[in-house]
Design a protein around this nucleic acid. Sequence first.
DNA 1: CGCCATTATTGACGCAACGTCAGACACTGC
DNA 2: GCAGTGTCTGACGTTGCGTCAATAATGGCG
Lengths: 246, 246
Amino acid sequence: MTTTGTTTRKQREIEAREQLILDIAARMLLERGYLGMTMDLVADATEYSKGTIYNHFSSKEELLAGLVAHTGMMRQEMFRRAAAFSGRPRERMTAIGAAIDLFVALHPEHFRAEQIVMADSIRHKVSPERQHAFVAAEQGCMEIVGGIVTDALRAGDLTLPDEVAPPALIFGLWTMSYGGHSIIEGKPTLAEMGIPDPHGALRRNQQAVMDGFGWAPLTHEWDYENTRAWVLQEVFPDEARDAGFI
Amino acid sequence: MTTTGTTTRKQREIEAREQLILDIAARMLLERGYLGMTMDLVADATEYSKGTIYNHFSSKEELLAGLVAHTGMMRQEMFRRAAAFSGRPRERMTAIGAAIDLFVALHPEHFRAEQIVMADSIRHKVSPERQHAFVAAEQGCMEIVGGIVTDALRAGDLTLPDEVAPPALIFGLWTMSYGGHSIIEGKPTLAEMGIPDPHGALRRNQQAVMDGFGWAPLTHEWDYENTRAWVLQEVFPDEARDAGFI
DNA sequence: CGCCATTATTGACGCAACGTCAGACACTGC
DNA sequence: GCAGTGTCTGACGTTGCGTCAATAATGGCG
């Protein structure tokens, strides 16, 4: 038998199968919810037996955690590309916002899986290694965004009061983004409540947070919707097309 | 047999039992999570049989929805009292923030139950009546907050740009609050990420949103932490004591 | 090529939890 | 006391998670 590099044919087969399981589980989670995603159905859909599925993921919780870790890494990669956008720090933060919107559109199962996995009762069944995988992705995103804030402080575009540390500002944008996408996903009646374009409202509110901390240039001095359009076109052309954003 | 008013002894017994079931289910949901809250255990803990539990709630999902409806009504009541605080509109909005913090501290199971119930796969198993119960509570809260924004606009404390409707501003505060409490609950490692006081950071960020829309008086012109302390003491003395806030 | 050791795969099985329902039970009016 | 009405019960059918003994595939070696 020949091997290519350091991986045998068998190892590559196993890796491909793991990807297949994740893809099918993701679709099933979206279409049928957590309870509707049964290990038997996953086994059937992949055309492997239950035992084989359990060789990859030792429990249903591990499989979910695998989903979160996988999409979490993709998110970090999208953050990295967004942060590399050349422009003023607040434009780069706007690019991060665009990246999140795209990410949510392309991987709508991520937040749902994350919410389930984060519940204590589920999380303590997940192996430390896999937990570390998605915690690291989260930390990575925080650090990327933290770098943008640092650049803004250095450039003099932003001056935070003493009682507000940079991570606290990031926390504000994070909470709004997280809550916004959770609510948009969970409440189909926002339009009846007077919010016909929740995604637009979310963007406008995130700009308001930055305005509130005096992060230059302010909303009325700069067209950040234009920056966003530019980011979608230049940084994420493929993703924006796939998500139907352009 | 004698009856008091329009309710028989039996009816009152049933009502008290429903309350008992809800209390025990809430505690169990908190301590053991959604999967750990089994109908058999609820039956055991209440010292009734499973059949009797199912006379009150026709499924586990209905029981969960019952929890959400129950605490949702309590939340609406707390919003009502907070909005009645006498002060400038932005102070009253700050009072709403304090009410939410107290509510989350006193009923930590609410958001968790709500997230579970809101997943499509669960929600479509819940009876329309009970769904209406908690949608109505949500709408009620929105209307109360909407009234405060309207007052602010009338008083001239707030002027929104054309593209931002009042519900869109409320949406911003809502998403931040929802996401904030979800994240605080779900991520035990915020301190390691540089956010040692997430509740404080959340409050500061919500004030930033209002600052961002120019809602007078701005943060640097008014001590809203002081307003909050006053609200806790005057409007919610009992709740603040129970939650350990004062 | 044929043989055996090792590894991978399978699906029937044990167990736990949801929801049901036939029968036991309690209460009321006569 | 007794019939009738409404309430309560827990054993049972079903489904889904996770296991493991049996089976199949793989690969090294004479």
